[in-house]
Amino acid sequence: MRNAVTQTLSKQSPASDAAAPSGARGLLSRLDQHRNIVVPTVAVLILIIYFQWRTESFITATSAQNILNQMAFLTVLALAGTFVILIGGIDLSVAATATLAGILIATWIDKFGGPLAIVMVIVAGAVVGLVNGLITTMLKVPSFLVTLGMMSVLDGISNTVSKGGPVSYNSNLLQSLVNESMIPNVPNGALIAILLTIGATVLAFGTSFGRHMYAVGGNERAAALVGVRVRRTKLAVFAVAGAVAAIAGIIFTGQASTGVPMGAGPSLLNSIAAVVVGGTALSGGVGGPHRTILGALVIVLLSAGMDLTSVDPYTQLVIKGIVVIAAVALTIDRRRYGVIK
């Protein structure tokens, strides 16, 4: 039995590839197998061509730098959500965690010094994630409901700490860390997002923790049968998600130069959109951090292009909602559900 389940898990592994037919049919089959990468890649190209045709100023050095700035925060926030989605859950509190982290870093950076304050904020984010994981695994409450409630709790704490207003600080560390450029024309925030994506990808595909994460997302019961410590894996995933969300909050506050209550809240939809557009299935076990950065690029290009072409903000929300629905329809594994509710 154990060997049989092991073989099943190996078939679900993201690294496994079935032999494809040859010729045109084989090409179509391979394209279908990799549609979660092909679709967002094609979407990026279409968006660039379309908005450049509409504005003739979409592809400029200034525009590219603005897109990188927007991608920095969104990519890191979406990475936080990616980990939980990969195990078949969802974390609706990542944006609220980022907001609280932004308030805390603005409150603590002058008091404790930059490096210590950053560490403290990241630990606080990990604790929030761990609490989400504990309630989900110990009390058997769906992660959707747990993190929905936690979102409200964190928003309340953020407003309490900030007294409902922006929190200013004197240190220049965050501006240097996020807004300056070690590489010409590439903001440090974008560089942090790229490095985090690389690290998260190595964690997902190059470690036993990553393999356990995909196993839990692919088939939790089968994973438990072959010895995966499901509860421990889930707790670790939620804690990592909280820590990464805190880093997103630090980037946000560095870009805004102040701690803003509810600042990251509106980015929740965009972060989920980036995850699913990149090809990580909400059903779990499929996708990864390397796809999330591509999804974030699609969302940022779409937002920037709609701003340049003066699309009404409310219409932008409608379009983004449609994009999320379409992405879920393309990526969800319907074989995982006997009945769609």
Rank of each mutant, 00 (worst) to 15 (best):
I194S: 06
E220H: 00
R229L: 07
F238S: 13
T147L: 13
T147C: 14
T197M: 14
F252D: 03
F252H: 10
S168V: 02
V226F: 07
T147N: 11
I194D: 00
K140N: 14
F209V: 11
G217D: 06
I198E: 01
F205R: 14
P184F: 08
V216G: 11
L177I: 12
K140C: 01
V186A: 06
L173F: 15
Y169A: 05
A256L: 11
F238P: 11
L145I: 15
P142E: 04
I194W: 12
A256K: 09
T137C: 11
S257T: 14
S143E: 05
T201C: 03
I250K: 09
V153G: 03
L196F: 12
I247V: 15
S181Y: 02
A246Y: 04
N185S: 13
V167M: 13
L148D: 00
N185W: 07
T137K: 03
G210K: 04
R232I: 12
G218K: 05
L154W: 03
Y169I: 08
V240E: 00
A190C: 04
S176I: 13
R211K: 15
N179K: 13
L154R: 07
V186K: 01
N159V: 13
A256V: 13
P184T: 02
R211M: 10
L196Y: 02
A239R: 02
G199A: 12
A215P: 01
N185P: 03
G189H: 02
I192V: 15
L173D: 11
L235E: 00
M150D: 02
K163W: 10
V153Y: 04
N188C: 13
L148H: 00
L203F: 06
R211S: 11
G165M: 09
I251W: 07
V186M: 12
T253H: 08
N219T: 06
T137G: 04
V244Q: 03
V141F: 02
I192P: 02
A248Y: 06
D155P: 00
A224W: 11
A215E: 08
V202W: 13
N172M: 10
V240A: 12
D155G: 11
S176N: 13
Q255E: 14
M213L: 15
T258Q: 11
A204D: 02
V178R: 01
R231G: 02
V178K: 09
F238R: 12
G218D: 01
M182I: 14
T160G: 10
N159K: 15
G217R: 09
R221I: 10
V202G: 11
I183K: 04
V178T: 09
S168F: 09
L139S: 05
L145Q: 03
L174Q: 08
V237N: 01
G189M: 03
V240L: 15
S208E: 11
L196V: 15
A193R: 11
V228E: 05
P166C: 00
